[in-house]
Amino acid sequence: DNLVIALHSYEPSHDGDLGFEKGEQLRILEQSGEWWKAQSLTTGQEGFIPFNFVAKA
Score class of each variant (00 low, 15 high):
residue 17 D to A: 14
residue 19 G to D: 02
residue 43 T to Y: 01
residue 55 A to N: 07
residue 19 G to K: 11
residue 7 L to H: 06
residue 25 Q to I: 15
residue 57 A to H: 12
residue 2 N to Y: 14
residue 16 G to R: 09
residue 10 Y to D: 00
residue 47 G to L: 04
residue 29 L to Q: 04
residue 6 A to T: 07
residue 54 V to S: 00
residue 10 Y to E: 00
residue 54 V to A: 02
residue 5 I to F: 09
residue 12 P to S: 14
residue 22 K to F: 07
residue 7 L to M: 08
residue 22 K to R: 10
residue 31 Q to T: 10
residue 50 P to N: 07
residue 25 Q to Y: 15
residue 42 T to P: 03
residue 53 F to D: 04
residue 16 G to F: 10
residue 27 R to I: 13
residue 39 Q to R: 10
residue 30 E to F: 10
residue 26 L to A: 00
residue 29 L to F: 06
residue 25 Q to S: 11
residue 54 V to I: 06
residue 3 L to T: 07
residue 30 E to S: 11
residue 26 L to M: 08
residue 38 A to D: 00
residue 38 A to I: 07
residue 14 H to T: 09
residue 32 S to C: 15
residue 22 K to I: 09
residue 46 E to A: 09
residue 56 K to W: 15
residue 25 Q to M: 15
residue 14 H to Y: 07
residue 21 E to K: 14
residue 20 F to D: 00
residue 47 G to W: 05
residue 15 D to I: 13
residue 12 P to L: 03
residue 46 E to S: 12
residue 9 S to D: 11
residue 14 H to R: 15
residue 34 E to W: 12
residue 27 R to N: 06
residue 18 L to P: 01
residue 37 K to S: 05
residue 31 Q to D: 11
residue 37 K to F: 15
residue 20 F to E: 01
residue 10 Y to S: 03
residue 44 G to V: 02
residue 23 G to M: 03
residue 41 L to D: 03
residue 8 H to L: 12
residue 18 L to V: 04
residue 51 F to M: 13
residue 4 V to G: 04
residue 52 N to G: 10
residue 38 A to W: 03
residue 56 K to M: 14
residue 28 I to S: 00
residue 23 G to Q: 01
residue 6 A to Y: 02
residue 39 Q to H: 07
residue 6 A to Q: 02
residue 44 G to R: 06
residue 53 F to H: 08
residue 18 L to R: 02
residue 28 I to F: 00
residue 6 A to E: 02
residue 33 G to Y: 04
residue 24 E to T: 05
residue 2 N to Q: 10
residue 14 H to K: 15
residue 50 P to Y: 09
residue 50 P to F: 07
residue 41 L to H: 03
residue 39 Q to A: 07
residue 45 Q to L: 13
residue 21 E to P: 02
residue 22 K to S: 06
residue 17 D to V: 08
residue 56 K to C: 13
residue 34 E to M: 13
residue 49 I to W: 02
residue 48 F to A: 05
residue 49 I to V: 09
residue 16 G to H: 15
residue 5 I to E: 05
residue 40 S to R: 09
residue 29 L to Y: 04
residue 21 E to R: 14
residue 10 Y to G: 00
residue 26 L to T: 01
residue 8 H to R: 14
residue 20 F to Y: 03
residue 16 G to K: 08
residue 27 R to F: 10
residue 22 K to Q: 10
residue 24 E to Q: 07
residue 17 D to H: 15
residue 22 K to T: 06
residue 2 N to I: 12
residue 56 K to I: 14
residue 18 L to M: 07
residue 46 E to Q: 13
residue 49 I to M: 01
residue 2 N to M: 14
residue 27 R to E: 05
residue 43 T to M: 02
residue 35 W to G: 07
residue 44 G to T: 04
residue 2 N to K: 09
residue 37 K to Q: 06
residue 7 L to C: 10
residue 7 L to R: 04
residue 36 W to Y: 10
residue 36 W to E: 00
residue 48 F to L: 11
residue 11 E to F: 14
residue 13 S to F: 12
residue 39 Q to C: 09
residue 56 K to F: 15
residue 27 R to V: 11
residue 17 D to W: 14
residue 50 P to A: 03
residue 32 S to K: 13
residue 18 L to C: 05
residue 11 E to C: 14
residue 5 I to W: 09
residue 16 G to Q: 08
residue 45 Q to T: 07
residue 13 S to H: 13
residue 2 N to P: 06
residue 36 W to L: 10
residue 50 P to C: 09
residue 36 W to K: 01
residue 24 E to M: 02
residue 29 L to I: 12
residue 33 G to P: 03
residue 51 F to D: 06
